Computed example of a mutant assay.
Amino acid sequence: MSKIFTYLRINKNNKSYTKLQEEKIINYVKEHNLQIYHNIEVEINTPSEEKNIMELLKSCQMNSTLLVYDLNVFGRTVERILEIVKFLLESKIRILVIKQNLDLVDNNDMLTKMILGMISMTIALDKELMSLRTKEALTAKKLKGESLGKPKGTIQKSKFDKQRDKIEELLSVGLSVRKIAKLLGYNNHIGLNNYVKKRNIREQSSSLEELAS
């Protein structure tokens, strides 16, 4: 029989879930009279720490078996779970999942293929539903007369901001936006022209020269 590893996801903010994993794994091992080769424990308290899962699971040996309580221990999104499950199966690691009663053998196993297909469908469906919820929420706001997007008059950051002083200086000596764009290395003067207009830079400068055609 292949070497059996157990995997435990530890979260200090959810100690009851950690304890539940421990109890279920211990009971499963006793019930099936399994010999555990090594216990893998990963502490994950924030979503950003989930990247550590992949590194630690690399310690599992090829042709070994990984015993977990449920699929949720691999991630907090379906996409993350699918990513790690695929990684393990491609590494020839069998996955036993207690809660969902799953035995994911390898990529060539028909049942495993069906399960992975269902997970992929869930991801696609979730994205589609999220898109629909967003559209419906925006439509509802529009029907209520609420404004969408940023408040009118909001000025966003621009790539031209870092050279604003230089732009103002060149405008004040009478250079056109087209020439300023060329001088400062911008390929298209139209963007700079819009930048100058929206921020009333020309009015703030001492130059009254019209924009070149």
Score class of each variant (00 low, 15 high):
34 L>P: 09
125 L>F: 11
100 Q>V: 01
1 M>D: 14
122 T>D: 07
23 E>G: 00
187 N>Q: 15
192 L>F: 09
92 K>I: 00
176 S>K: 08
142 K>R: 14
66 L>Q: 03
90 E>C: 00
60 C>V: 14
32 H>F: 15
80 R>T: 00
199 R>C: 02
179 K>R: 12
141 K>E: 08
112 T>F: 05
119 I>N: 01
62 M>E: 14
110 M>C: 02
180 I>C: 03
2 S>V: 10
187 N>E: 09
61 Q>R: 06
16 S>R: 14
46 T>R: 01
188 N>I: 10
211 L>M: 05
93 I>H: 11
110 M>H: 02
29 V>M: 09
41 E>G: 03
69 Y>M: 07
87 F>W: 09
207 S>K: 06
172 S>D: 06
100 Q>N: 15
84 I>W: 01
78 V>G: 00
209 E>R: 10
161 D>N: 13
76 R>C: 01
29 V>F: 14
165 D>V: 11
129 L>H: 11
47 P>S: 05
5 F>I: 07
15 K>F: 02
8 L>C: 04
155 I>A: 01
116 L>S: 03
41 E>Y: 04
117 G>P: 01
49 E>N: 03
209 E>A: 12
177 V>N: 15
48 S>I: 07
165 D>T: 07
75 G>P: 10
114 M>Q: 07
16 S>M: 10
20 L>G: 02
56 L>D: 10
201 I>P: 13
70 D>R: 03
165 D>I: 08
76 R>W: 01
159 K>M: 14
40 I>N: 01
64 S>T: 00
149 G>C: 05
36 I>P: 12
201 I>V: 05
37 Y>C: 05
125 L>H: 06
13 N>K: 13
30 K>Q: 12
112 T>P: 09
77 T>M: 07
210 E>H: 04
135 K>R: 15
84 I>G: 03
10 I>C: 14
100 Q>G: 04
89 L>Q: 02
172 S>V: 01
94 R>C: 07
187 N>T: 13
157 K>A: 13
150 K>Y: 06
158 S>R: 05
79 E>T: 13
201 I>E: 09
129 L>C: 04
104 L>D: 09
119 I>P: 06
92 K>D: 15
75 G>T: 04
7 Y>K: 00
73 V>F: 03
2 S>K: 15
35 Q>R: 15
91 S>K: 15
106 D>N: 15
183 L>D: 12
105 V>C: 01
72 N>A: 06
170 L>H: 02
97 V>N: 12
22 E>D: 10
73 V>T: 11
61 Q>N: 02
119 I>E: 05
163 Q>H: 12
191 G>V: 00
180 I>E: 00
148 L>R: 03
87 F>M: 13
107 N>M: 15
87 F>R: 02
101 N>R: 10
16 S>I: 11
70 D>M: 00
121 M>G: 09
67 L>A: 08
191 G>A: 05
80 R>A: 09
160 F>Q: 14
213 S>H: 05
102 L>S: 07
202 R>Y: 05
141 K>W: 04
